[in-house]
Nucleic acid binder design. Structure first.
Length: 707
RNA sequence: GGACAUUUGGCGCAGUUGGUUAGCGCGUCGCGUUUACAUCGCGAAGGUCGGGGGUUCGAGUCCCUCAAUGUCCACCA
């Protein structure tokens, strides 16, 4: 006799092991009917911590797609992975070092690398274990780590190829510099923080200029106004002035340029090309001098005179004091609210700096990606993300791919110490500059993680080392978070098109954030984090999966509450008890459609076939949230509440034929429903299916779905 | 400043191309132990679908407009 309470703990771990042993997670082991490939590349979770609710959501969604397609007879491949997550992991590790009173800045590069490597491998194990707990039916034999030697080699080859194709170049550009992390960041790695500062009006020769950053102004010797600004009509482009400035007299030159906003401040500004992107552009345009004012540690350089060596925050009030004493401070507007770009990890204000960095020329690549989307070759779910994608592709700027951190794939390049010429050197053989015969040094930078992640659909399939990519690339669905619509999705499209002239996937399914019950973002500091593994221990994977799926439409953030999860644990128990009822009423009977003779039973089957059709179309259209809810409704409120209740008098009645017909009907309906429902609650459905009286059973994971 | 979303009973959400009395879960209130399930069953209360205007025989669903909320992007020195 079965226990009247369903025990998820024993069932779930036992079943997962059986599935693994069956080998069916690997497409090569699937029965012959599985011919057409269906592939999903798992976005590799960062191997620097445990899984969170967002991971549980993506694993569930992808597993649903894979299980559905597998049961439909596809040769399904879901490639799991783990991401070394360059900058992200380095930051996690730096925090750990900080706690131990250590710092990466006084560590040997090799030692640091080794430490982070073993830290990452440890976390990778946790992550793998947790993905299994979530029920992921992915092919572990094909698991890829983003720092495997083959991956590194391929990524470096791509770099060389792009250099040869003039798509990668090294140049002095203005970049985003994080003074805390001592590295450059790409544009998508900065975030705006609202800050309240003072806004100063300062006399600059005959002009009054406005600034929130007086500490950058030491070297300013160009003042810019709009050519149509009547206030400055008496001055001509190129006029020079003697200006009494912070540390004495300088000669200033007037420039008239339309980049100026006449309505802002006084309509006149001085430029600091080394520390401002707009100023840099103006300086480039007119070939003006550029001078560094702030060093990479965020301290003032000797150009600041008496202020040299001071940090910006310390220097600012002192500089203002001096300007005041010299009578140059015109007025101060307090409470000036503006957005300041900051490091997306530590919120340190970004200090723009001019540096020699590697860049990818994005224009032609972005155009190629735009074209395949225009041609309808790649679809977005929900489709409004297509617009966001388009916007980004039309406005993409050159991509800085070098990072000054050790944790990542090394940029295989040499740089000339005398003429700065830089070029790829995959084999690390060159020692003399081909241009000036100067001494070469090895580039110590690593690639932006997205440079390698962008190639992941090919890399995870082995690319040039294996045959897999020829079978499984282009893949089918890329399922990922909507925040990666900029960071990741376009880059995968770009790289697959560039390297193989193929799209990497035909469908992009984007999920939203998993928030707490009240819709607030989960964060450790708020203490509202739902840990999926703890939840599973309490309610089971199946319950968590349902709670993550029902009512969660693509692209929108969802609220997850423990109440909701508990509700689906109850549902698991309901399923279990339906199963107990059916088992105890159908002893010594094997399912056989032909024995269903009564009219009312045939009506029930017809109803089921209509529901099946409806739910199948929901699956095909990626409406998992609807399919799951409809099945739930049918199972509980139609099958259990009505059909089973109606069956009780029939089964207890005198009509043998009617009893037999009803017994068959119950088995047929239940087994079909269980089969359809399997992608959502894989464990309990498999467990139940194994005890149903059906001939020639295999694992439910490869059982064909009803049509 | 721009873009994209969201707004449906106390809370969280469905409602797919406009079509009968707008659904679900949780919660609330009654009642209930009957061949599975009290992690349950039966029943009930509770919504003028953000405001306004329009199209239509018919609008939660389409169009216009306003508002609130959220997210992203850009940015003024």
């Amino acid at each position: 006799m079965l226990d009247k309470n369903y025990d998820h703990k024993t069932v779930e771990s036992r079943i997962y092991k059986k599935w693994e042993e069956s080998g069916y997670f690997n497409p090569d082991n699937l029965p012959k009917r599985h011919k057409k490939p269906f592939t999903i590349i798992m976005p590799p979770p960062n191997a620097n911590g445990h899984l969170h609710a967002g991971h549980a959501l993506f694993v569930t969604l992808e597993d649903i797609m894979i299980r559905y397609k597998r049961m439909r007879g596809y040769k399904t491949l879901w490639v799991p992975g783990a991401d070394h997550a360059g900058f992200e992991t380095q930051i996690v590790y730096e925090k750990k070092l900080e706690k131990e009173g250590r710092s990466r800045f006084n560590m040997d590069r090799q030692d640091l690398y080794k430490e982070i490597y073993s830290f990452t491998l440890d976390n990778k194990k946790f992550v793998e274990e947790e993905i299994k707990i979530l029920g992921a039916s992915c092919d572990w034999s094909r698991e890829k780590f983003t720092l495997e030697p083959e991956v590194v080699k391929e990524v470096q080859k791509t770099f060389k190829k792009m250099y040869d194709d003039h798509l990668v170049f090294r140049g002095k550009r203005i970049i985003n510099w994080c003074s805390k992390h001592q590295t450059t960041l790409s544009d998508v790695e900065t975030t705006d923080e609202e800050k309240k500062d003072a806004f100063y009006y300062i006399q600059y020769g005959p002009f009054v200029i406005g600034t929130a950053r007086p500490e950058t102004k030491f070297g300013d010797k160009y003042v810019v106004v709009h050519p149509k600004d009547s206030r400055y009509a008496q001055y001509k482009d190129g006029d020079t002035f003697e200006v009494e400035w912070i540390n004495g007299k300088i000669t200033a030159t007037l420039i008239k340029d339309e980049a100026i906003d006449m309505d802002f401040g006084t309509g006149a500004m001085t430029i600091t090309p080394w520390h401002d992107a707009i100023d840099f552009e103006i300086a480039e345009k007119y070939k003006l001098d550029k001078e560094q004012i702030i060093n990479f540690r965020g301290k003032l350089l000797p150009i600041a005179g008496e202020f040299a060596g001071l940090k910006i925050a310390e220097a600012r009030p002192k500089i203002i004091e001096k300007l005041k004493s010299k009578g140059l401070l015109v007025r101060v507007e307090e409470n000036y609210i503006h957005n300041v770009p900051c490091c997306y990890k530590c919120k340190t204000p970004i200090e723009p700096q001019i540096m020699d960095q590697w860049f990818v020329k994005m224009k032609s690549l972005a155009e190629s990606a735009l074209k395949v989307v225009d041609d309808g070759k790649i679809k977005f779910i929900p489709d409004n993300y297509e617009k966001i994608f388009r916007y980004w592709m039309n406005n993409s700027i050159d991509w800085n791919i070098s990072r000054q951190i050790v944790w990542g794939i090394p940029i295989p390049a040499k740089i000339c110490t005398s003429c700065d010429f830089a070029f790829p050197d995959l084999k690390d053989k060159e020692s003399q500059c081909p241009k000036c015969k100067g001494l070469l040094k090895k580039d110590t930078d690593t690639f932006d993680t997205w440079f390698s992640s962008g190639q992941w659909p090919l890399l995870s399939l082995g690319y040039s080392q294996g045959k897999d990519w020829k079978i499984f690339h282009p893949t089918d669905v890329m399922e990922t978070g909507h925040d990666l619509i900029f960071k990741w999705v376009p880059r995968m499209i770009i790289f697959s098109l560039y390297l193989q002239k193929q799209i990497p996937f035909h469908t992009v399914y984007l999920h939203g954030l998993v928030n707490d019950a009240k819709g607030h973002k989960m964060s450790k500091s708020k203490g509202n984090v739902i840990n999926p593994i703890n939840i599973i221990d309490k309610y089971g994977t199946d319950a968590l999966r349902m709670a993550l799926i029902v009512g969660n439409s693509p692209g929108t953030d969802m609220s997850l509450s423990e109440d909701k999860i508990r509700g689906y644990k109850n549902f698991a128990n309901k399923l279990w008890n339906i199963h107990r009822f059916i088992n105890s009423n159908t002893e010594k009977i094997t399912a056989d459609l032909k024995k269903i003779s009564s009219y009312s039973d045939k009506i029930l089957l017809k109803e089921l076939s209509e529901i099946t059709k409806d739910i199948t179309s929901d699956f095909e259209e990626y409406r998992f949230y609807l399919a799951a809810e409809k099945l739930y409704q049918y199972i509980w409120h139609r099958f259990a509440d009505v059909i089973i209740e109606e069956s009780k008098p029939i089964l207890a009645g005198p009509d043998i034929k009617a009893i037999l017909s009803r017994q068959q009907t119950l088995i047929v309906i239940f087994s079909q429903v269980i089969t359809m429902f399997h992608p959502f609650m894989p464990f309990i459905t498999e467990e139940i299916y194994q005890t149903l009286p059906i001939k020639d059973k295999n694992y439910l994971i490869i059982t064909p779905r009803p049509k």
